[in-house]
Design a protein around this nucleic acid. Sequence first.
RNA 1: GGCGCGUUGGUGUAAUUGGUUAACACGCCGCCCUCUCAAGGCGGAGAGUACGGGUUCGAUCCCCGUACGCGCUACCA
Length: 478
Amino acid sequence: MNNEVRVRFAPSPTGYLHLGSLRTALFNYLFARHHSGKFILRIEDTDQSRKVEGAVENLINILNEMGLNYNEGPGVGGEFGPYFQSERLDIYKKYCDELLASGHAYYAFETAEELDEMRKVQQMQGKQTMYDRRARVLTENEVKEKLASGIPYVIRLKVPMDTEIRFTDIIRGNVKIDTNLVDDQVLLKSDGFPTYHLANVIDDHFMKITHIIRGEEWLTSVPKHIILYNAFGWELPQMAHVPLILNPDKSKLSKRQGDVATEDYLKKGYLKEALLNFMTLLGWNPGDGEEKEIFTKAELIEKFTIERVNSAGAVFNVEKLNWMNGEYIKNYDIDALTELVIPYLNAGGIDTSDLVKTKRVVSAIKNYISKLDEAAEQAKVYYNEVILNAEQNAIVNSETSKQVFALLLSKIEQLLEISTDNFKPTLSEVQKESGVKGKNLFMPVRLALTGEEHGPELGLIAYVLGKDEVLKRLKVFL
RNA sequence: GGCGCGUUGGUGUAAUUGGUUAACACGCCGCCCUCUCAAGGCGGAGAGUACGGGUUCGAUCCCCGUACGCGCUACCA
């Protein structure tokens, strides 16, 4: 139990689940399950100015919908809560005071305007913009006075000078950064809330996180965290910074260039299994020359290791997602698929009250769609009323067409039921006996049954319509 | 600008960790199937591993430099 793996997904509630976050959550989840460890959800809601109504609920819903169930966190509890940072303010305060007392942090009183001014000057001088650590020289009495007079303050980290922080990232290997380049980060804001850095370190420690798996954008702030761990005398968890997901132009995946919210993809009819499979393979592969690409969640859990996560960013390729989603649709259990497809058919104005027919339709279209929102368009042909234009009427009313219809009719009447297999042979018989073949044979039948010149193979159409409906439609043109 | 990270066909990834005709998938093109649009089957083009130097009998793989891309550089996460 002592060596139990504990990882966390710690999003700030922005209102939707970004695909990049989804993948981070996914990697954490797979890692935890692979090691029979715990997957924890912690909400990083320390930025009061960015609060979004309902964001947390939405986040939890999507996580659950995606099947990334967490062992501890909002709603499920756990012995290391609370799991909202906004409910842990007293903890941060306490440890910040400790830092102050041990000389690892200090008070600073600059206003936002003063800091802006400072940066502007630095910029003009061509210097690096960072806090000039001016408050470090304040005497104890000066600090006391300012505090007493009620001037707003922040607490900053006292970064040790002239040294180098080295650490090992599971994905990136050894990284080193000169501390002179590390900012005296604000730890506690003037509103009493902690910044990410402070809250993160404290929470990870008390929640006994063993592995920090998060986005690459955090890599450069690791030194700040290490300084904090050292100041507290706490053991550093292992770290793995996963690569970013990119737009086709290689910039960080953004709203401007398409959908980035997981819920948008779900809405369009990407199956969660496919999305999970695809996202996992973006920047990871099982190695060993494995050529398979379709994996069940259980397989992913079994094979997943963070060591094999790539270090380079990966372009999000929707085309491939479409293909993979199509594969999942083709192989999905038909009853389950039908259930999933029904809302999309209804949205397209298709009446699905006849479940038997609906299921036939779904089995007919599943090979032809790559996402569920294409279902209605594909299914339309099976619900069409047959309305023909002049040209099409001429085809249907030709001498040979009438002959074909009559023959076909008599043969179908003898069939017990039309199946996907027996319709084509029946047509072949008609061909032999009537001498009509090719387009002259098929097109009239297609038009009579669907009113369309294009569409799926006739066997499929006849099967979906069923014997009675086929007969009915043929009789119209006799 | 500074610092950090990265770089294998258009895209996602392989390559028994220094010895392969650099492989697979998506996409693209062609053929077959065929009444049509697809699907499916078969095949093809496409990288000499960003570039330049090393180390080595031998580098996709190790080292250095350059270029390019991305990230960070907030009292946001």
